[in-house]
Simulated assay, not measured.
Amino acid sequence: LYAAMVAFMDKNGALEVPLRTCISAGEALPEEVGLRWETHTGTCILDGVGSTEMLHIFLSNRKDDLVYGTSGVAVPGYALRLVDEEGVDVPSGGVGELLVNGASAANCYWNQREKSRITFEGVWTRTGDKYEMRDDGRLVYCGRTDDMFKVSGIWLSPFEVEGALVSHPRILEAAVVAAEDADGLEKPKAFVVLKDGVADDALLAELKDHVKDKIGKWKYPRWIEVVSDLPKTATGKIQRFKLREEN
């Protein structure tokens, strides 16, 4: 929704609407969208993370402490950890699954004992989200645990590639999933929605070079497919598993 409104204002100018605060949650906010929104409206977007299991937003930016491209820091009353596959805490710069501890946590899932045992570990609740901890304590979203994949033995964040694609002036939305090349190795494949016009080979090559320049040569999408829209849940989360099924 924010991306669509920014694209509209890029063409038609800012809307004369008095705004005090804007909130984003559900799907991580791309840095480019936040920056352009603030340029048009003069109002920041506070990107945060919550979950049904926790009832409440537990990780967020705030007006006096905002860095686009990050999910911010813990909301007062909540404690956060990043752990690896063995449950060991991940140091700054590493990527791990986000665990949260707070009084608003659910007790269990109704009639789903096995899922409850996996998700609720004592005072800690597993979110299923992968994050990177920066040196300043801010958390950077990398993707859902089942959306992450390795390229040349290194974990790739689909969200990082998506953010690079969205920073291109022709792209409205993007989603990245793993696809196998001719050798059976996983490489990133992108699905993109254009703001206008149609794609040609020149644009697709330009997008690949754009990603290489923004985040690194090995992270660029080997394939790019232009679509009219992306599959989403009722709350706006991109359903990447549906895109994986199409490969």
Score class of each variant (00 low, 15 high):
Ala3His: 05
Val6Gly: 05
Phe8Met: 07
Lys11Ser: 12
Asn12Val: 05
Ala14Ile: 05
Val17Cys: 00
Pro18Tyr: 06
Leu19Tyr: 09
Thr21Glu: 11
Cys22Tyr: 05
Cys22Glu: 07
Ala25Thr: 15
Glu27Leu: 09
Glu32Lys: 10
Val33Met: 01
Thr39Gln: 14
Thr39Pro: 00
Thr39Ile: 04
His40Gly: 05
Leu46Gln: 13
Val49Ile: 09
Gly50Asn: 06
Thr52Asn: 10
Leu55Trp: 12
Ile57Asp: 09
Asn61Thr: 05
Asn61Tyr: 03
Asn61Ser: 06
Arg62Tyr: 03
Lys63Glu: 14
Tyr68Arg: 09
Gly72Thr: 04
Gly72Asn: 06
Val75Lys: 03
Gly77Phe: 08
Gly77Glu: 04
Tyr78His: 13
Asp84Trp: 14
Glu86Phe: 12
Val88Trp: 10
Asp89Phe: 12
Pro91Trp: 14
Ser92Lys: 12
Val95Arg: 11
Leu99Asn: 02
Val100Phe: 05
Asn111Gly: 03
Gln112Asp: 13
Ser116Asp: 10
Thr119Cys: 07
Glu121Arg: 15
Val123Asn: 12
Thr125Ile: 12
Thr127Phe: 03
Asp129His: 11
Glu132Ser: 11
Met133Tyr: 01
Met133Gly: 04
Asp135Asn: 11
Cys142Ser: 08
Arg144Ala: 04
Lys150Arg: 14
Ser152Lys: 15
Leu156Asn: 08
Pro158Asn: 04
Phe159Tyr: 12
Phe159Cys: 00
Glu160Ala: 15
Val161Gln: 00
Ala164Ser: 13
Val166Leu: 01
His168Val: 03
Arg170Gln: 11
Ile171Phe: 02
Ile171Ala: 02
Leu172His: 04
Val176Phe: 02
Ala178Gly: 15
Ala179Cys: 05
Glu180Leu: 14
Asp181Met: 09
Gly184Tyr: 13
Leu185Gly: 00
Glu186Met: 13
Pro188Asn: 09
Val198His: 11
Leu204Pro: 02
Ala205Glu: 13
Ala205Arg: 13
Leu207Cys: 06
Lys208Thr: 07
Asp213Pro: 00
Lys214Phe: 08
Lys219Leu: 09
Tyr220Gly: 06
Pro221Ile: 09
Arg222Ile: 01
Asp229Pro: 00
Leu230Arg: 09
Lys232Met: 11
Ala234Asn: 07
Gly236Asn: 11
Lys237Leu: 08
Asn247Tyr: 08
